[in-house]
């Protein structure tokens, strides 16, 4: 049969249009580009820092404390004479890896359970929703302090715990998203094409909720960084002398009056990272609403 001339226009995505299109690109604009650029640079630093020609981040030089900028110490030194640039870059690595640990754990738990609950409903939905409710009532800080004192598993243990704390949030969003997408007739069309439930979840549902996964990951990574800084400040996260954005702040907090630079530099990096992640999350969820 020959191609039929269609006089009908290709309609721009309307409100009924599912927003699952792979290849759908969100317009970042300049704030988004800056934010994404900053996060990517930090990720790159996190990956490359062991290979960079940096000073030993934990090496003290008590004869050269709070030094100004110099060729030896591009950002100067801190109150214990440690190279600030080296500490900063290692701190970015430690903090980002810690945050990512929490996110990976939260997603590994929350995404499959949320999808399954929203897709199958029934008893699994009921039981998993109750468990999520219970986990959400546990005060995060209390749990983190308990795990720290009881298990002493270090920052990794703390971030795995944080991942468990975050899992119900991911679970809830993914469950709601799945329920939304699951009403689309194309899922039934897929079943009629012979897809198993697993294939439906993987090829039909997951692409439809992937944008929301990115939104949640952006927000929660920002929150994880904040919490890492918080618990490290309290001494139950990354432990000194190791550098993280949190320990850099706690070690130098007393310097605020005498040499603010030692505090302000890690504080600025942390704030910018969290801000950037939130900007990215906002743009993603905005694009998700507009479709």
């Amino acid at each position: 049969m020959t191609e039929v001339l269609e006089t009908e226009p290709v309609r721009a995505a309307g409100p009924a249009e599912p927003t699952a299109g792979a290849g759908r690109r969100v317009r970042l604009g300049w704030p988004g580009t800056l934010a994404l650029g900053f996060v990517l640079i930090c990720l790159l630093i996190a990956l490359l820092v062991p290979f960079l020609p940096l000073a030993e981040p934990n090496e003290q030089d008590l004869g050269d404390t709070l030094a100004r900028y110099s060729a030896d110490h591009l950002l100067g030194t801190d109150q214990l004479g440690r190279d600030l640039l080296a500490r900063l870059l290692w701190a970015i690595r430690t903090s980002l890896f810690a945050g990512l640990t929490a996110i990976v754990v939260a997603t590994l738990i929350g995404l499959p359970t949320g999808m399954l609950a929203g897709y199958r409903r029934g008893w699994f939905d009921t039981v998993s929703a109750r468990i999520a409710d219970v986990v959400l009532t546990v005060p995060a800080l209390v749990l983190l302090l308990t795990v720290h004192t009881a298990l002493r598993t270090g920052i990794t243990g703390q971030m795995v715990t944080l991942g468990v704390i975050f899992a119900p949030r991911i679970y809830r969003v993914m469950r709601a998203e799945t329920i939304r997408v699951a009403t689309m007739p194309y899922l039934l069309a897929g079943r009629m094409s012979g897809c198993s439930h697993v294939r439906i979840l993987w090829r039909y549902l997951l692409p439809g909720i992937r944008a929301q996964v990115r939104v949640q990951v952006s927000y929660l990574l920002g929150l994880s960084l904040l919490i890492e800084a918080g618990i490290s400040f309290l001494g139950v996260g990354v432990e000194s002398p190791d550098a993280s954005l949190g320990t850099m702040l706690s070690g130098a907090a007393a310097m605020l009056a005498s040499d603010a630079r030692v505090v302000l530099i890690p504080a600025a990096v942390l704030s910018l990272l969290i801000l950037s992640l939130n900007v990215i999350g906002d743009i993603e969820s905005e694009g998700e609403r507009r479709g």
Binding site: L188, A189, G190, R203, P207
Partner: peptide, 23 residues
């Protein structure tokens, strides 16, 4: 079955060939 709404009855993440080849 062929559904009513053309805008929600095809998986937006698959190409037309993939959709037709799947069954």
């Amino acid at each position: 079955m062929v559904f009513q709404d053309p805008y929600t009855s095809l998986n937006p993440a698959m190409t037309i060939t993939e959709i037709v080849a799947e069954p």
